[in-house]
Design a protein around this nucleic acid. Structure first.
Lengths: 141, 141
DNA sequence: TTCTTGATGCGAAAGCTTCTCATCCCTGTT
DNA sequence: AACAGGGATGAGAAGCTTTCGCATCAAGAA
């Protein structure tokens, strides 16, 4: 039962929040825009407003349940947190997203920030490229 | 004479392009939004449209003269290319931007992408933090 | 069940960026 | 130097993502 997750972070357990949480936990791909989540809810016959989706996702982000990434094109994508940080490789052609974590890169970032006198709060590393798969069409979403 | 730079990349030499190029080459800070460039032009008494600034910056990007970065908050900043790639540390408080380059990180990215079967076209690494300077107010732009 | 407060849905609005189109001005050619 | 052609420009409208405002509604406590 996911309701405990909501209570744990101090959010009232409401229908929209449960539905959105469920989608984030089960749907594929795991990286979705607010619009994506909204469409899934509409197709499922839910009565929900796009504004609510944005509000809830923002609250989830503040609560540490999801992470928001600023991909190119001026729109954000959200993904469920899995406890461990990771970065992304995005295919320019098909939009496929691969997650990765590289400890060496993480350590180098700490070193660089320290040298500049900064305290790291967050970071965003996104590699853009071509995935080179045979089934990768140019039907960029 | 900057006009040669424009000709070199196959762009007609026009007044707006010259002016924008000059601002990008001389103004501080080196990271500016389209709006920033537009305001500088207006204050200089130029008759120019915001749409033109966006058009020209996009053309400059396509021509490899400038690079566009997607910072948080949904707005882009542009900076003149200096021949060498670099990444950024941005202060959450005052917006100060520090550039850095770390060869180890660059190499790791290549390795990670290769392992995932991707061909890197581009990448974006932005570290967000606090710059810890005494003159760093919370007057986030 | 009733009450209080916070959550929701809807439409409007804000912020950034792009589009449309009539006019203008580079640029190569007379 | 004047000309012609097509790309470039300015102004406003429009598009897109995201947020706001407010009347209504529902979750959680008494």
């Amino acid at each position: 039962m996911e309701s405990s997750e909501l209570r744990k972070v101090g959010l009232k357990v409401t229908l929209p929040r449960m539905k959105i949480l469920e989608i984030l936990e089960t749907a594929e791909p795991r990286h979705m825009s607010a619009e994506d989540v909204y469409k899934i809810l509409l197709e499922a016959g839910e009565e929900i407003g796009l504004a609510t989706v944005y509000r809830v996702l923002t609250q989830f982000e503040a609560a540490g349940l999801v992470t928001r990434h600023h991909f190119e094109g001026g729109h954000s994508v959200f993904e469920m947190n899995q406890g461990h940080h990771h970065d992304h490789i995005v295919c320019n052609q098909c939009g496929k997203v691969v997650e990765f974590i590289d400890e060496t890169i993480e350590r180098c970032q700490e070193k660089v920030a320290r040298k500049a006198g900064f305290t790291i709060r967050d970071h965003s590393l996104i590699i853009y490229g071509d995935c080179n798969r045979k089934d990768c069409p140019n039907l960029k979403s």
